[in-house]
Amino acid sequence: MKKWRSLAAALFSVALSFGLAPQARAEGGAGPEAMSMGNMCMVMFGYDMIHITVFQPDKSRSEYCAEIPATGRTIMAFDIENPAFRDLPLEVRVIRDPLTPTLPTGADLEALTELHLPPKKYTKGTFSVEHDFANDGHYITLVTLTRENGEQQTEMMKFMVGETLWAWVPQIAGTILIAGMVFVYWKHTHPTPKKKEANETVAS
């Protein structure tokens, strides 16, 4: 009995931490190209970063990153950390996420584009763009840096707008896991009458 109680308690703690508790996690792409710190995302170019912070001034004073709560007027603010990048052309494009592991080679970005800022030098190191998101869904911010030798490097940050099913997946999975553990624990602590009577017969 003590063994099952200890096991159930341990599994419950694990499920709570992964399924229901708030998590500090990487946002955006699947690798080191994008991450989040609080409500501020960072698109990484090697060890250099560009901060992205999102606001919806018509709705609240809160700052957002990879989970924008609603559609409507949205402001994305960019802060270029490396001074050397301020003298290089920077292009920003926001597209609807095709929900594939990687962007297909040769994908028609124009057909997916929500907004586009052509390559430009942002010598002040900060700039912002405003866009009115009309639809809930998944989106990708593509940031392209053109280096002095003409080489282009594109990094991405994925984000969601509005309430989508995927936003609830961790909570749903955690709830199912906890319910399953409770059921298993109950089954082992409340044997069926036949099994209990059989055990008593063998013992006598």
Results as ranks from 00 to 15, higher is better:
residue 17 S to W: 09
residue 52 I to L: 13
residue 199 N to I: 15
residue 7 L to D: 02
residue 82 N to G: 01
residue 113 T to A: 10
residue 55 F to P: 00
residue 2 K to L: 13
residue 168 W to C: 09
residue 25 R to W: 05
residue 47 Y to N: 14
residue 109 L to T: 04
residue 118 P to C: 06
residue 97 D to R: 02
residue 187 K to R: 13
residue 15 A to D: 09
residue 63 E to R: 15
residue 132 D to S: 11
residue 27 E to M: 07
residue 129 V to H: 07
residue 72 G to Y: 04
residue 180 G to C: 15
residue 88 L to H: 03
residue 7 L to T: 10
residue 120 K to T: 12
residue 162 G to H: 05
residue 8 A to P: 00
residue 56 Q to P: 05
residue 75 I to N: 08
residue 65 C to G: 14
residue 17 S to V: 15
residue 143 V to H: 00
residue 40 M to V: 15
residue 194 K to A: 11
residue 151 E to N: 06
residue 27 E to A: 14
residue 145 L to N: 01
residue 96 R to I: 11
residue 83 P to M: 05
residue 153 Q to E: 14
residue 47 Y to V: 07
residue 174 G to W: 09
residue 70 A to P: 01
residue 21 A to M: 11
residue 135 N to D: 15
residue 68 I to G: 09
residue 39 N to D: 07
residue 34 A to V: 04
residue 98 P to V: 05
residue 130 E to T: 14
residue 104 P to R: 08
residue 127 F to T: 01
residue 142 L to C: 01
residue 107 A to W: 03
residue 45 F to V: 01
residue 134 A to P: 00
residue 33 E to W: 01
residue 110 E to F: 03
residue 49 M to S: 14
residue 203 A to L: 10
residue 15 A to G: 02
residue 189 T to C: 12
residue 51 H to F: 13
residue 124 K to I: 04
residue 34 A to M: 03
residue 51 H to A: 15
residue 199 N to G: 13
residue 190 H to M: 09
residue 47 Y to F: 07
residue 117 L to V: 15
residue 95 I to M: 00
residue 157 M to F: 12
residue 45 F to Q: 06
residue 55 F to K: 14
residue 5 R to Q: 09
residue 52 I to E: 02
residue 8 A to Y: 13
residue 105 T to N: 11
residue 116 H to C: 00
residue 56 Q to V: 03
residue 102 T to G: 01
residue 172 I to N: 02
residue 11 L to C: 14
